[in-house]
Design a protein around this nucleic acid. Structure first.
Lengths: 225, 225
DNA sequence: TTCATAGTTCGACCTTAACCGAAGCATTGA
DNA sequence: TCAATGCTTCGGTTAAGGTCGAACTATGAA
């Protein structure tokens, strides 16, 4: 009856609509201020403040103070993974919030997950890298091969700089729409950033969807067949 | 503000202590009656009945009627996966329900997850099978190689019978204590069942812990080095 | 200093839902 | 048919917690 970790505490934390909206918004990977999150959740600032304090207590979000702003972000990648798992369950039973909006298709094709590429394109990239022996996978563990290191360098990402940092280079993340793994970790983040620099892809103003430019779309399928 | 699947609905479903206890109990893979679940959750039968109806509505559990009993089980493996993810978060922040009990160590070493082997031993078995090329993994997809088929047959599991069924043979499942993948799916279930038949391992009466016999422990490490 | 903006705290409402007692079905067994 | 058991439904109570207005504390800018 009372074995294992206390699942109810954090599930309840996520299970409040206002807080769930905030967390969903933070899945974009961007750090948002309390006021912005209040807007996302559709509550007043006071209410949001209370919620954010609870999320903080529960170690689901992380705060950075900057001047008179407070920037909130997901505490770590595991939180994003868990949220995706929950989305998988919710989507599986066809319980999309309202009707599936026009953005839904775009979201499934490509979107930002925490800070890396997810959706069909994300899964495609992951599969391509794996098949060509540029990354290896063993259980949950994931890494870049020597060949992969070369490839990523050519792509324009500073691998050595990334591997110096203490954050894991490669991480796997389960896609809620595709139910497949895609590439997360600091490399996943860097790859997406690089694609944005190359103007392959642009972020949608007010959703997590990613819009590939026609040039980017062609280049992407050439690079990750 | 309202994009993506409705995460709050099911998180709230899980986020009620009584319901969370029931779901945790069902992680054992055993189907339990309403009365048993009421006991697990520490509520009266009426209350439990209400909770179970909600879990049913939310497609988290599955019911089978048998005589005047109603047997409840997790709806599908994805639910178990999500629960494990939540446990990972909860355990990560050191929020074990009470103090870590005496059973905690045993649980981490070996326990039943839905219906297959989890914990250190589960991860060890998975790693061994993968390294010896008996199973292959690509993204979330997982399968048995030809060599693996032979191995499993020798072990005493009827592979052909399993592959006839429509349930997936191999599935990966993330371990909350080890943070690594272990083997789920009908094969994972059959492997555990076989080990029980061989009396390598016995189930703890009232927890998810698995207790290896001394003979079984030796045989296990010989089989899955 | 004075004003404006970002965020927190307090207090009072109010909705929601968990809870159990009691009565009601349904299935089984005598 | 009658009793026993397993589960569900109903009603009323209670507790928890989300909500916002208003007052308060920072930080920054004029």
């Amino acid at each position: 009856m009372k074995e294992g970790p206390d699942i109810a505490r954090i599930a309840a934390l996520i299970g409040e609509p206002a807080r769930a909206n905030m967390l969903t918004a933070l899945m974009s990977g961007k750090a948002l201020t309390a006021t912005e999150l209040a807007g996302e959740a559709g509550v007043t600032l006071q209410t949001a403040s209370g919620h954010l304090a609870k999320l903080r207590d529960g170690d689901l979000v992380q705060v950075r103070k900057q001047g008179r702003h407070k920037y909130f972000a997901l505490a770590h990648a595991d939180v994003a993974t868990t949220l995706e798992a929950l989305m998988g369950l919710a989507a599986g039973q066809g319980a999309l919030r309202t009707r599936t909006g026009p953005k839904d298709a775009a979201m499934r094709q490509a979107r930002v997950c925490y800070n890396h590429l997810a959706g069909q394109m994300g899964v495609q990239m992951f599969g391509s890298l794996l098949q060509r022996g540029l990354i290896w996978q063993e259980g949950e563990a994931l890494g870049l091969t020597e060949a992969g290191k070369g490839f990523v360098c050519d792509f324009g990402v500073d691998v050595d700089g990334l591997s110096m940092a203490r954050a894991p280079l490669c991480r796997s993340c389960l896609d809620w729409s595709e139910r497949r793994t895609h590439l997360a970790g600091s490399l996943g983040r860097a790859m997406l950033a690089r694609m944005e620099t190359l103007d392959w892809v642009r972020r949608d103003r007010d959703s997590r969807a990613l819009l590939f430019t026609s040039r980017g779309s062609a280049a992407f399928s050439r690079a990750f067949t």
